[in-house]
Simulated scan of single mutants.
Amino acid sequence: MTSAPPNPPSSQLLNPAQTAERLPYPKLLEELVSLLQDRDVQVPPRLVLPLAGGGSLFVMPALDARTAITKLITFTPANTGSSRATIQGDVVVFDVPSGERRLVLDGPTITARRTAAVSVLAAQRLAPCKQGPVLIVGAGVQGKSHLEAFAEGMGITEFFIASRSAASAERLVAHAQALGLKARVATDANAALAECPMAVTCTPASAVVLSALPRPDGFIAAVGAFTPEMVELSASLCQYMAEHGTVVVDTTDAGHEAGDLLQAGLEVARFASLADVVRSPAFEIKGPVLFKSCGWAGWDLAAARTALQEQAQAF
């Protein structure tokens, strides 16, 4: 007599490696699309509290008809370049009908993977040219996750890596090569932009890192700046994209968070969101594309839904 499979535990605390295992990029990409089409999703504005020393505490809830989450993380820019992570915290996942806690996921892992997946989804839907090489500006956690996501989600095999730290750039190049990908250091990100149909900026956003104009078929995903004071793209580049290309933001919340666009004097509310793109089969793309990502608890909810599905399949 075959015994019945064990019931899933009521709650699991997952470490970074276990959290990553529950978030395979193909399934996470599918869930992002599903979430943007789910009218039951509710995402209130996130609460950002300043901390002494220049850090911030983020409280980010979101829910749908079956799952509710709260992401609780700290962002500590002073940790950049040290052994301590700049983002630390957790995502707590609840079952709505029962009220039970189901998962506690590693916050930095969720942030890295869902952010990269959102950039890939935007590239899949918006990039005029979906071939490599991809320029990645910033060789930290987000640089690594974007390299892996573009390789797995779009089949990109060639990357240029630019970083203010030569050692960090070399490490990411070595990681790419260990995955069987082609990669090399780009000492001048602006010059490399001419060779790369797609580019991602994922730096600490303390200064402009891209100012050159993209190729006519170019796509730029700007990830690093998620407050009005942060910036990665020059004002002239953003203004050019608004006038001659297509600008899309990840969510309407970017209206008060998209530092790159706000510092360029652009009215962010005029731009379409990724939800508009996904829900419109005939979304019009003109010229090169700028996708401005600021982060949203809905992306964390999509990651939690993915993790729950993976958990259910494991039992």
Rank of each mutant, 00 (worst) to 15 (best):
S3C: 05
P9I: 10
Q12S: 12
N15I: 10
A17T: 14
T19L: 02
E21T: 10
P24N: 00
P24G: 03
L29R: 06
V33M: 01
L35Q: 09
Q37H: 05
Q37Y: 01
R39T: 12
D40S: 15
D40F: 13
V43N: 07
V43C: 03
P45R: 10
P45L: 09
L49K: 11
L51I: 07
G54C: 06
S56G: 01
F58E: 07
F58Q: 09
V59L: 15
P61L: 02
L63M: 14
D64Q: 00
I69N: 04
I69W: 05
K71Q: 13
L72R: 13
I73R: 11
T76G: 05
T76Q: 15
T76F: 12
P77V: 03
A78H: 12
G81E: 09
S82D: 06
R84L: 15
V92S: 06
V93H: 02
F94M: 10
P97N: 05
E100A: 15
E100Q: 14
E100R: 15
R102P: 01
V104E: 06
D106F: 05
T111A: 13
A122R: 02
A122K: 03
Q124F: 07
P128A: 04
L135N: 12
I136D: 13
G138I: 06
G140R: 11
S145V: 06
E148C: 10
F150W: 01
G153Q: 10
G155Y: 04
E158L: 06
F159P: 00
A162F: 06
R164H: 14
S165T: 13
A166S: 14
A166W: 01
S168R: 15
A169T: 04
L172N: 06
A174D: 14
H175P: 01
Q177E: 14
A178S: 15
A178R: 12
L179V: 00
L179S: 01
A183Q: 07
V185K: 10
A186F: 00
C196M: 10
C196H: 07
C196T: 11
A199S: 15
V200K: 11
T201F: 09
S206W: 04
A207S: 15
V208R: 10
L210F: 09
L210K: 08
L210P: 08
L210C: 08
S211R: 13
S211C: 09
D217R: 02
F219A: 09
G224K: 07
T227C: 04
T227I: 04
P228Y: 05
E232R: 08
S236V: 10
L237Q: 08
M241R: 07
G245D: 07
D250K: 03
D253I: 00
D253T: 03
A254L: 00
A254Q: 01
G255D: 12
G259P: 00
D260I: 00
L261T: 01
L262K: 00
L266D: 08
L266A: 09
V268I: 08
A269I: 04
A269E: 14
S273K: 01
A275T: 13
D276N: 06
P281K: 01
P281V: 03
F283M: 05
P288I: 08
V289W: 09
W296G: 00
A297W: 09
A297L: 09
T306G: 04
E310S: 13
A312Q: 14
Q313C: 09
A314E: 15
A314V: 09
F315A: 12
